[in-house]
Nucleic acid binder design. Structure first.
Lengths: 141, 141
DNA sequence: TTGACATCGTTGCATCAGCAACGATAATTC
DNA sequence: GAATTATCGTTGCTGATGCAACGATGTCAA
């Protein structure tokens, strides 16, 4: 029996993730033209308060160069402010501007609604998916 | 209550998929330096026999330009043969060479072993994950 | 048959991802 | 305290990605 790509878990995960991301990107893309890295940086800053590039890099699974460039674009767009860290001159402090907070307020509601839509589609399978993702993510890559 | 990225399903799916893909890429990367598109094309051809770029494009969730370039690299490497389609001059027929079949034999065994490893890690959650992925993938993106 | 339209595979182009290298600052070691 | 080593953020560079345009071939309708 030869190998079957259709039933291969990494392939299936990748396809499902790409489809879900595309659907969600269509929603927030209509609201604000953000890339996925930009969206993740904003969403993280919305919770974390002032934080360094390195913090986002480890928490949000993005290379530090990607975080750095996303932060620069967001600063250019007036959504994020960069300031120096007191005490450690290597670090910078990233935080949302009022505009950034306002945008994240709207995007947060869109995201919650999309999450609810997904959960409704998944029905009883949602809980199992959540536990499985917990395991996969906890194991690390 | 502000939006929480950590609990957001698209984000979690994306992180889990990236981690699993990275783990698997490390395995087959040691065996043959393939990109993910190249791996998918090979794996699909292993099952499908001679088939067009368009067929792979729809079945394997890759843009046709990506399939086209992956096929060219695989042809260069002697793993795939391109030939014209009888009857329809627009189509080409892609199929594995003997070398390609031999490589896929090895990669298929590696993939099966990795799948078994994942299922063991997931334990009782594997079935639920599978059903959830079915629903997400079936819905389309 | 011929002209409009659709489809196939390739290629160009702009952007993005990932990795390494760099200057600047801290921490550590002797 | 001086020298080595480590960490932080940025930037360059190479290749991958995704979209649109293109030439070539097929299909369909008048």
């Amino acid at each position: 029996m030869s190998f079957d790509l259709e039933g291969f878990l990494p392939y299936r995960l990748s396809v499902a993730a790409a489809q879900v991301s595309r659907r969600f990107a269509a929603l927030y893309g209509a609201e604000a033209g953000l890339t996925i890295p930009e969206w993740r940086v904003l969403a993280h800053l919305n919770r974390s308060g002032a934080v360094s590039v390195r913090d986002i890099n480890v928490k949000v699974n993005l290379d530090k160069s990607i975080v750095s460039r996303a932060a620069s674009r967001l600063e250019q767009a007036g959504l994020v402010r960069k300031s120096g860290h007191a005490g450690d001159g290597r670090l910078i402090a990233l935080e949302l501007t009022p505009d950034g907070q306002e945008l994240m307020g709207r995007l947060g509601r869109i995201a919650e609604a999309f999450q609810a839509e997904l959960l409704a589609e998944l029905g009883p399978e949602a809980a199992g998916l959540d536990r499985a993702l917990d395991r996969l993510i906890a194991r690390g890559g």
